[in-house]
């Protein structure tokens, strides 16, 4: 039970990262690798604010998110104003962020011991509560509910935002940039804003993750783009729809499901060292399999 609740909570926290990846990869068609640096940036800013400056957890979390927005904006500017290939722009910022994060933290790992975080609460007043007949730690259940609230709030805000005039033109920017120019909107600015927004969410996810797991680590971003993509792909398989609301919700569900699958696989004896390899293979097959199936059925059709 503890394992399940923990996996659910992490899945929900990382769903914010998955939503960021959804925005760059799916809405903007922009393969943004900044992710791996900005999740750590969010975590390290939040950790240092809490430990060194004793700010309130909410302030630390928001500061982490703002850091991610700046990082994303830098990638966006490199790509649009300096005409650097999108992948390379992200790699440059991600690489730079590795040093920036070490500078912020002053070392490679900052533990969050004895500081109050967003996850220090217990909403139930008792140590354990009964969930469907199981005894669960009330503290863990609070963390789960809080993460759920965060994920749903972010989905709600994104859904509303992408249906405003500004949000609509941002979606169109990824769909047909020629049309967006002809409608008088600045494609470069829209892209910068979008990548910035996405990395803000990703850093928010990092700030929450650091508080939940109790530390920030320079390595925590490793493989996170692929992780986010896996969630997005599972979400698309779950909802099968391109409608905005379902796609956003699907991404959250994809993140949760993927985290559960990983927890189960680890429980069954998957070597944690192989986890990233498995994730990469999973995403690769999700990208390649549909093509193979399509070409097979086309061949089959011709012979028939």
């Amino acid at each position: 039970m503890t394992l399940l609740i923990g996996a659910l909570t992490v899945g929900l926290i990382l769903s914010l990262l998955a939503l960021g990846v959804y925005i760059t990869f799916r809405i903007f068609n922009f393969p943004d690798i900044t992710t791996e640096g900005s999740i750590t940036l969010g975590a390290s800013i939040a950790a240092v604010m809490l430990v060194n400056f004793h700010t309130s957890p909410a302030v630390a979390t928001i500061a982490g998110m703002l850091g991610g927005m700046v990082a994303g904006a830098v990638t966006g500017v490199l790509h649009t104003k300096f005409r650097i290939n999108g992948l390379l722009a992200g790699i440059l910022v991600m690489t730079a962020l590795y040093s920036v994060n070490l500078r912020i933290m002053g070392r490679s790992n900052v533990p969050l011991m004895d500081v109050k975080t967003l996850f220090s609460h217990n909403w139930f007043g008792t140590d354990t509560i009964n969930v469907f007949g199981w005894d669960a730690s009330a503290h863990d259940v609070t963390a789960l509910l809080f993460s759920l609230g965060m994920a749903l709030a972010v989905v709600g805000v994104l859904y509303l935002f992408f249906r405003t005039n500004l949000g609509t033109v941002m979606r169109a920017t990824g769909d047909n940039d020629q049309m967006v120019k002809a409608q008088g909107s600045d494609v470069e600015w829209n892209t910068i804003l979008g990548v910035s927004l996405a990395n803000g969410l990703i850093a928010l996810s990092g700030a929450l993750l650091a508080q939940y797991q109790g530390f920030s680590d320079a390595q925590m971003g490793l493989g996170m783009v692929v992780w986010g993509l896996a969630s997005v792909i599972i979400g698309e398989a779950l909802t099968g729809s391109r409608s905005l609301g379902l796609a956003l919700l699907g991404t959250v569900m994809g993140s949760i499901l993927f985290r559960e699958l990983v927890a189960i696989a680890l429980r069954w004896g998957l070597n944690p060292n192989d986890l990233k390899l498995m994730t990469a293979i999973f995403v690769l097959s999700a990208l390649v399999l549909p093509q193979i199936v399509r070409s097979l059925s086309r061949k089959g059709g011709r012979h028939a």
Binding site: N165, L166, G167, T168, M179, Q183
Partner: peptide, 17 residues
């Protein structure tokens, strides 16, 4: 698509498209 065209060259803010 028409919501985009209805604001051609105008400011696009946070009002409902």
């Amino acid at each position: 698509n028409f919501a985009l065209a209805a604001r051609r060259g105008k400011h696009r803010g946070l009002s409902w498209a």
